[in-house]
């Protein structure tokens, strides 16, 4: 793919000032789109789905199946898990030549991982010290490091945002969100 993953492809394309036909435009988009996830990712994700299906089968068996005429609670989940498992096997087989869907992980995927970590941190801290400080930290991390804002604007906006949330959720709506102040 010719465009690689340079972040400013779009700007460059615009500056060309050329009028593109829809077909050309579609091509530019296709070139800009991230690379598909590929066969390894397909295999891995299908295996995870297969494992989920198998897990479902085992748990459903424990609930008891009964007969189609008189089903026990496990019958329906068993059928559904079976569909997951069988389709996963099909996907492993037909997707082995390299799936064209999905997206490869890039260096920027770490941003999503860090984002997820901060969210988990917030869930753990909120019941202990209230939502204000975790929210402030989350805003700051997302703006300064994940968003590339400057120190000053990141600090300022974080405080403003948390203040606004306090005003809306606590002062105006009177919700019972765990809070420090």
């Amino acid at each position: 793919m010719r465009a690689d993953h340079a972040p400013h492809v779009e700007e460059a394309a615009v500056q060309e000032e050329e009028i593109l036909t829809p077909e050309q435009l579609a091509e530019v988009w296709a070139a800009e789109a991230p690379e598909p996830a590929g066969p390894v990712a397909n295999l891995l994700s299908s295996l995870v789905a297969l494992a989920l299906g198998m897990g479902g089968l085992v748990l459903s068996l424990k609930l008891g199946l009964g007969t189609p005429a008189e089903p026990r609670p496990g019958m329906w989940p068993f059928v559904v898990s079976l569909v997951v498992a069988v389709l996963s096997v099909v996907q492993i087989v037909i997707g082995r030549t390299g799936g064209k869907d999905g997206e490869k992980f890039s260096a920027y995927s770490w941003y999503a991982a860090i984002g997820f970590a901060t969210l988990v941190g917030m869930v753990l801290l909120m019941p202990v010290i209230g939502f204000e400080i975790p929210s402030l930290l989350l805003c700051f991390i997302w703006m300064r490091w994940l968003g590339g804002e400057r120190w000053r604007s990141a600090t300022m906006y974080s405080i403003l945002i948390v203040g606004a949330f306090y005003a809306i959720f606590i002062a105006a709506l009177g919700t019972t969100i765990p809070r420090l102040f």
């Binding site: 209230g130 709506l173 009177g174 765990p178 809070r179 420090l180």
Partner: peptide
């Protein structure tokens, strides 16, 4: 009514711990 009641409560401080 709930909102006004909550507003008067909000001054009471945090609810954790």
């Amino acid at each position: 009514a709930a909102t006004t009641a909550a507003l008067s409560l909000a001054a009471c401080g945090g609810n954790v711990g």
